[in-house]
Amino acid sequence: MPLYAALIYSEEGGEASPEEWSKVMAEYNEFSAKAGAAGVIQGGEALEETTTATTVHVKGGKGGEAVHTDGPFAETKEALGGFYLLKCADLDEALGWAAQIPGAWRGRVEVRPCVDFSQAQ
């Protein structure tokens, strides 16, 4: 069966009230229960806000110097072309792998941490 990536865009930065937050969570729980029961969901993660993002670009092709920029990828002519989910000990390890993705020299790779729901927030 074909696979599809469903990419979720939403407004951020606002301090949602606890009521609003639990309403959003309830809606997501409802969707994942339904789509999970239907066997549709193959994986998924919530991402931390773009202020936690680091964008990697490798200058001069494979193996070149990795340049890091604080913040998300500011869209210009490149478009989202794919993603990997990396399990790494820390950001340095993740950035090290990201710099080896061909997209890092052919374009940019934005590295964003996933929300860790096991940690008390």
């Binding site: 931390e48 202020t51 936690t52 000990a89 820390d90 950001l91 941490p113």
Partner: peptide, 21 residues
């Protein structure tokens, strides 16, 4: 405060870089 938040959430490690870095 934004930088501190990024250090925590993105897990910027608290270490001295290894010799090659």
């Amino acid at each position: 405060s934004r930088a501190k938040k990024k250090i925590a959430l993105a897990r910027i490690p608290y270490r001295v870089p290894s010799p090659h870095e």
